[in-house]
């Protein structure tokens, strides 16, 4: 049934696009509402009739994956949720996969957020992903959430030298002095890895500038696709690995399922979203071709 749905959807989309191509060869413009309908179909069809693809981690994703995999168990990892619900469909799958990976490897994880909205999204990860997968892990011993702190780069400037000065308690008001996980953590320099998730400001770039470089801590990032090109100047020396958009999340999930038996059957929202993204990209490319056909035809006509 699902395969039939996929075939019918593809026939409708590509049949329609061919019809539009012939129309444009005859010199007729395409109304923007028609474009909207095609994008809607391209995104909706793979959601209704899932299309899944095999993904392989690219070197830029593998850089972060391997670093987490190779850290000795008990290493201290800081994960910062610096994003909002708009970016969440792209970034939350990365956050979930990286958090699961770190905890599975036995690392001690500190969660925090520089965005007010990030704290609730962090709760979602703790509640929906970490608790069910690792019911035996103890809050304050194996992981802790310090929640959100206002102040943007100001917060980073302080925690780079004294973490508890900015975060005296965890998100539930429990003093960090009583959290076992913080016995050997005084500042960001005491972390073995920092993972900055987000895409806005403050975000991964600020983590590199205000913490990664001054404290000499490796930084891994997960960002929305539109932000990824801006971070390439930092890779691979200041950023050890980067997950960009849905594709980055899908590659990480695929690598996790491939290399860790425990996560073979885990939910893979990133991989699921690759179907709509792939089809939407192809439809956009077809529209670029159709748009150029119209352009060259009209230019030739004007030339005559």
């Amino acid at each position: 049934m699902s395969n039939l749905g996929v075939i019918i959807s593809l026939l409708v989309i590509f049949g329609g696009l061919t019809w539009l191509l012939f129309r444009s060869i005859k010199g007729r413009e395409v109304d923007r509402r028609v474009i909207f309908v095609f994008i809607f179909l391209a995104v909706a069809a793979p959601i209704l009739f899932p299309i899944t693809f095999q993904e392989h981690a690219s070197p830029v994703v593998k850089g972060l994956f391997d670093h987490i995999d190779n850290l000795p168990p008990g290493s201290r990892v800081l994960i910062s949720f610096d994003y909002d619900p708009a970016m969440a469909p792209e970034v939350q799958p990365m956050a979930n996969a990286i958090s699961l990976h770190c905890l599975d490897r036995g690392h001690k994880v500190v969660f925090m957020s520089l965005w007010a909205t990030g704290q609730t999204l962090l709760f979602n990860t703790l509640q929906d992903v970490i608790r069910p997968e690792f019911p035996d892990l103890i809050d304050g011993v194996d992981f802790v959430s310090t929640g959100y702190k206002a102040g943007n780069e100001g917060v980073l400037n302080v925690i780079v030298s004294d973490f508890k000065k900015m975060f005296p308690t965890d998100v539930n008001g429990v003093p960090l002095d009583s959290a076992v996980i913080f016995d050997e953590i005084n500042s960001c320099a005491d972390f073995d890895l920092i993972v900055a998730l987000g895409g806005g400001r403050p975000g991964p770039k600020e983590w590199v500038l205000f913490v990664g470089d001054p404290a000499d801590v490796p930084i891994g990032v997960g960002v929305a696709a539109v932000v990824a090109p801006q971070l390439y100047p930092y890779y691979p020396r200041q950023i050890i690995g980067m997950l960009g958009g849905v594709k980055g999340a899908a590659e990480y999930e695929s690598e996790l399922a491939h290399r860790h038996e425990r996560f073979k059957d885990m939910a893979q929202p990133g991989l699921k979203m690759m179907g709509p993204q792939t089809l939407a990209h192809i439809v956009i490319m077809c529209f670029i071709v159709i748009g150029n056909v119209v352009f060259f035809r009209s230019r030739r006509r004007e030339g005559r």
Partner: peptide, 30 residues
């Protein structure tokens, strides 16, 4: 937050796909 702000914000951001497609047809020309 999860039942109102999350879906609304994600929807607003997702609208970009429609505008990108429309812009790619109209403006992305050689």
């Amino acid at each position: 937050f999860n039942s109102v702000q999350y879906p609304l914000s994600a929807t607003m951001y997702s609208l970009l796909a429609f505008f990108v497609a429309s812009a790619s047809y109209r403006a992305f020309r050689a």
